[in-house]
């Protein structure tokens, strides 16, 4: 009997360890393959420009991840990003508001737009965030077009551009001069989220609500507060992603958020977060974000048409989830067999 228990715990340990490492392993294999397929892949310049390309999607993926952890979803995340960056650019460029206040207003706008999503769900009692955030997605998109008159706002002040456009050193020939500030900010944010989700009350409540909402309610968690919070967090992350993207392209343009929610959902799912909530790691999402960025970059380097790239990313999502299903299925059957033997 004791033998079985130790076997089971060993299996559990392997399963958990592998669950975390799966996306990382996939990422490493992809990198090895691409460095063999194209000599220009594994260069400092290229790797660090992939890091820059991944940075704004990293913020969106974190926002999406907390929503999915509660078994929700934020389809409006792309245009929350756009609308907050458009508001920021309008303030800074057209109304000559100070750059610092404009940056702050981007974050505030993101939080408010997220709060609207959360309140529609909890106070408005709309049946599922899929519906409410699909509605706000269109509203935010439309407002972005209206505010900008459908043309991009360029010529942002240096402070606003800094997070998205600057490098750690102004001398581009040095190694530090190739590391984008945006990537460093993204890594810092992932570390913050790792601490937040594992070691704070709200973080643990997010997992609890996603795991089983009824149990969470019974154990005294303010479920509506948690569910509203995740959309506010998602809105703030979207706004930060928007600041970075605006810096990167030196403009806020009204269609920048188009389909970005797709990549955000894909990174989270590839990273092993359960779509039914309650399960998922920050490290997994980090790998998911990089996996998609590396995949896009690699396919560009191999001159693969964008249409085919879309097919590949679709296939990767399905395969990632499929592996997850097979893995948990295989472990369950092994466990059953062992149980039957004893």
């Amino acid at each position: 009997m004791s033998n079985t228990t130790s076997n089971r715990s060993k299996l559990e340990a392997i399963k958990q360890g592998f669950g975390k490492a799966g996306p990382v392993i996939a990422l490493i294999i992809l990198c090895i393959f691409l460095s063999i397929a194209n000599p220009n892949f594994l260069t400092v310049t290229n790797i660090l420009s992939v890091a820059g390309q991944a940075s704004y999607s990293g913020f969106l993926a974190l926002g999406m991840m907390v929503c999915i952890l509660t078994a929700g979803i934020d389809l409006s995340i792309g245009f929350t990003m756009t609308l907050s960056s458009v508001i920021m650019a309008t303030l800074a460029v057209k109304m000559q508001v100070s750059p610092f206040i404009s940056l702050l207003m981007a974050i505030v706008s993101g939080a408010i737009l997220g709060l609207i999503n959360g309140l529609l769900l909890t106070a408005g009692k709309l049946p599922h965030p899929f519906i409410s955030t699909m509605g706000t997605q269109n509203i935010y998109k439309g407002l972005s077009l209206v505010i900008t008159g459908a043309t991009p706002i360029a010529g942002l002040p240096a402070l606003i551009r800094w997070p998205g456009a600057a490098f750690l050193s102004s001398n581009r020939d040095t190694f530090l001069g190739k590391i984008p500030v945006s990537f460093v900010l993204m890594v810092i944010m992932f570390i913050i989220f790792s601490v937040f989700l594992n070691y704070t009350t709200l973080g643990r409540h997010i997992y609890a609500v996603g795991g089983n909402i009824e149990t969470a309610k019974l154990s005294g968690i303010n479920v509506n507060f948690v569910r509203t919070s995740v959309y506010v967090i998602s809105g703030i992350m979207a706004a930060m992603g928007g600041i970075i993207l605006a810096g990167r392209t030196d403009s806020a343009y009204p269609l920048s958020g188009l389909l970005l929610e797709n990549d955000a959902i894909a990174s989270v799912i590839i990273g092993g977060t359960s779509f039914f909530g309650g399960k998922g790691t920050v490290l997994g999402t980090f790998s998911g974000v990089l996996l998609i960025a590396v995949l896009r970059n690699g396919l560009n380097l191999l001159n693969v048409n964008a249409d085919i790239q879309t097919v590949v990313i679709g296939a990767v999502i399905i395969i990632a989830v499929f592996i997850d299903v097979v893995r948990s299925g295989a472990f369950t059957s092994v466990r059953r067999k062992r149980k039957a033997q004893t």
Binding site: N38, N40, T43, T45, N46, S49, Q53, L245, R248, T249, Y253, L255, S256, L258, L259, R296, N297, N300, L301, A306
Partner: peptide, 18 residues
């Protein structure tokens, strides 16, 4: 799509890296 300016920017960057 013609509205995917970020995607196109990345393609330029990747071509340079290539």
């Amino acid at each position: 799509s013609e509205s995917d300016s970020v995607g196109q920017s990345n393609m330029v960057q990747d071509a340079v890296n290539n």
